Amino acid sequence: MPVVKVKGMSCQHCVKSVTEALKALKAKDISVDLLSGDVTYAEETPITPDAVKEAITKIGFEVEA
């Protein structure tokens, strides 16, 4: 599963926002770990890492490179 490190999440609302942003890209099996900042999604999801980064930054979070 691809892993994206997200900075700036502090609550369950943040988790929901990131999850919804990835669902909009048709990502599957999304998991957001609030404490570590790790976001994972199914490898067979047909989206690019750049699209994931853009979707997350659009909602106000920072993606570590």
Rank of each mutant, 00 (worst) to 15 (best):
T19L: 00
A51D: 15
K58R: 15
S31Y: 01
E43G: 07
D29I: 00
I56F: 13
D33Y: 03
S36D: 04
D29E: 14
A51Q: 15
A27Q: 03
K53W: 02
A21H: 07
T57Q: 15
T57D: 04
T57A: 05
I59F: 13
K28G: 07
C14A: 06
M1Y: 10
M9S: 09
G37F: 00
L22E: 05
D29P: 02
T45R: 09
D33V: 05
I30K: 10
E43V: 00
K58E: 14
C11L: 03
I56R: 11
P49L: 13
E44A: 07
V52P: 11
Y41L: 11
K5V: 08
A24G: 05
L35Y: 02
Y41F: 15
D33A: 11
V63C: 12
I59W: 10
E64L: 15
E62Y: 06
G8S: 02
I47H: 04
A65L: 15
V32F: 05
K5G: 03
V18H: 02
G37L: 00
L34F: 07
D29M: 01
I56L: 13
Q12S: 12
A27K: 08
A27Y: 02
P2G: 09
K7C: 01
G8I: 01
D38K: 13
K23H: 04
T19I: 01
T48H: 10
A27R: 03
P49E: 11
S31A: 09
A65G: 14
K28T: 14
M1P: 13
E62V: 12
G37R: 01
L25E: 08
L34Y: 06
V32K: 05
E43M: 04
E62D: 14
V4T: 13
G8C: 03
T57N: 09
E44Q: 07
I56Y: 11
V15K: 12
V39K: 06
K7F: 03
T19N: 10
D29C: 02
L35T: 09
Y41W: 08
V4M: 09
K16D: 08
V15E: 04
G60V: 11
C14I: 04
H13S: 06
T48F: 08
C11R: 03
E20W: 00
V32S: 07
H13Y: 01
L35N: 12
V32P: 10
K26W: 00
S36L: 03
L22W: 03
K28F: 00
T45E: 08
L25S: 06
V39Y: 06
L35D: 14
P2T: 03
P46R: 08
K53Q: 12
D50K: 14
P49V: 01
Q12P: 01
K58G: 05
E64W: 02
P2Q: 05
T48D: 09
D33K: 10
D29Y: 05
D50R: 10
E43C: 00
V6W: 10
F61N: 05
L25F: 08
V39M: 07
C11N: 10
E44P: 00
A51R: 13
K26P: 00
T57Y: 07
Q12Y: 06
V6I: 12
D38M: 05
K28E: 15
